[in-house]
Design a protein around this nucleic acid. Structure first.
Lengths: 330, 330
DNA sequence: CTGAAAGCGCTTACAG
DNA sequence: CTGAAAGCGCTTACAG
């Protein structure tokens, strides 16, 4: 059995209260007893158990991040931002994966109900407003990332603007027949980017047809994978006539799309979305999303909310930026 | 204040023991009382608190993964493997980031001492054997991933073989002057790959010079970033004579190296390391590491160890596989 | 099928 | 500067 606070107290000849004080740096403990306790604890490999500590103190000093797809490049950038602000704070971060196929709301509720953390960062979960409102009864700080709600702090990205910017650029260059490589068409960011797409088209008085939305069949990670892009691009190259330009919903998919073009020895101008770290090196024209900043800000919002429950709700909306590289300049 | 077990018990007219039984599915509880309790709990948004539950039951049903660089592509693959085996098991996974600049052993000890989980997965932490042995006193299941120790379950990758395989392939094709793009030269996987590199050279009776080890200056993520590869390749292209071929320590760096070649309009055959999902699409010849399988196996080891403390130590060593694509065939 | 009660390992007023 | 004691919110033999 591992030692507990009683073992340490007994061996050090003090009460458990004193041992507790040593580990919590509360009150003043005489330096000599402090050292004695610390030495014995080190010897015996003791540290207060997290569970007992949190139950007794009702403080947690921890936040939890809930994400649907941990294994994508988008997430790793966000995480860096979160870690950026957490560094040097005495707050622990725990990350838990949410399975998108099994009732997202239910999973979130299970975690929140169990009172794991002081606050929760919901990243890219895209719950509906009705669902979000249900979470309010747990009365715990929640901050949204890559999502928007008038009822919670949020940091989101203007996807309508992103789609608009991308397509407008292509239209300005004189391309008329433009197709969009989507992922799951019911995902909110995709819906918004399509809205932006349409907005740009209508500004140039070009009609929109459903056939301009293309997707591959490979649906791993909601379709945000290379293969899906490859498949979609194959379809596009089979169209007659071949479209003038492509707007692709993610850089990862664009990697696949580029390969499909190379395989068929055809070149179609392409703009994609994300601006991952590899994108610069493979020459992707793309819409930059400040994922690091978004992770940073959302975490900051959450911490503020934990410390000051009743401050005003804060909705940050980050704007897109068009990064022009070679893939669109053909 | 959120409701606790007493609130539910009182409202349902039962004892707290019964409420507890309902939530734990232990014993038989009369169906009608079960329903009553569940309904009231749902109404009041109650679920047993994780901390209290774990303290009282001494069971955790959770494992914790400790990783140094969460934000790299290598990790995301491993994680998929871990999630693959955890799916359908009632085991929670928590992920915690270890800062490589602040005493890795100390951070690991702090977490283990606090008894967060039933077992710990140490991924790519590369503690020394002396350090690892210190962890034994906590008497808790530990499983190593991308690392080896005779004293712990481990899943590792044969990096010597990987380096050997890559360089031998280049030598067989007739290239004599080969350089290696390293990361931090003190990282164990890199050291081993260099050993394999040397082994292949000596088999072909080609002498080795330190100048054949090149690295960029950008050291984010231990040098495993695109920029480092770009910088390293620039140095290589400035050598006189330019080497015959390049062995690159990671696919991410190879992306940078490829860009450097394109920018200078020079082509040098290249083999890299990892086989990420993008690699197929950008035509990288590379050494495949079965990261998913490794994550899967290491997690499996850990779970077995948790269930059966005294089984024999199991050291899996995965073998590399050479995947030939276009980057080496110039 | 259910309840009373002890106990999990801590923290924290309170008192001195 | 330190100790005795209550309490955090649960689980689980034990008894019926």
């Amino acid at each position: 059995m591992p030692p507990n606070i009683y073992d340490i107290a007994k061996k050090a000849g003090v009460s458990i209260a004193t041992v507790s004080r040593v580990f919590n740096n509360t009150n003043n403990v005489k330096e000599s007893t402090r050292q004695k306790v610390l030495t014995i604890a080190e010897e015996m490999g003791y540290h207060p158990q997290a569970y007992a500590q949190r139950l007794a103190s009702k403080k947690k000093n921890s936040i939890m991040m809930l994400v649907p797809v941990m294994s994508n490049y988008f997430f790793t950038e966000i995480l860096k931002g979160t870690q950026g602000i957490l560094k040097n704070q005495e707050i622990e971060l725990n990350i838990v994966n949410i399975n998108q196929d099994q009732g997202v709301l239910h999973q979130v509720e299970q975690i929140i109900k169990r009172r794991w953390a002081d606050g929760y960062l919901l990243a890219s979960l895209h719950l509906t407003e009705d669902e979000l409102i249900k979470l309010r009864r747990y009365n715990v700080p929640i901050s949204l990332l890559d999502d928007y709600s008038p009822n919670f702090d949020s940091v989101s990205f203007n996807n309508v603007e992103g789609g608009y910017l991308a397509v407008k650029y292509l239209l300005k260059k004189g391309f008329k027949q433009i197709v969009f490589i989507a992922g799951r068409a019911d995902s909110l960011p995709i819906v918004h980017r399509i809205d932006g797409f349409k907005k740009a088209l209508s500004e140039f008085e070009i009609p929109f047809h459903e056939t301009q939305i293309v997707t591959g069949t490979s649906m791993e990670r909601d379709g945000f994978n290379e293969k899906n892009g490859y498949e979609a691009m194959q379809k596009i190259l089979n169209m007659n006539p071949v479209p003038d330009a492509v707007f692709c919903s993610s850089d990862v998919k664009a990697v696949g799309a580029l390969k499909a073009m190379a395989d068929r020895k055809k070149q179609v101008p392409l703009i994609s979305y994300d601006n991952l770290s590899i994108s610069e090196y493979i020459g992707l024209t793309t819409i930059h999303q400040p994922m690091y900043d978004m992770g940073y800000n959302a975490t900051q919002n959450l911490i503020s909310r934990i410390n000051e429950e009743n401050s005003e709700i804060c909705n940050d909306i980050h704007s897109p930026e068009l990064i022009i590289r070679s893939s669109s300049e053909i």
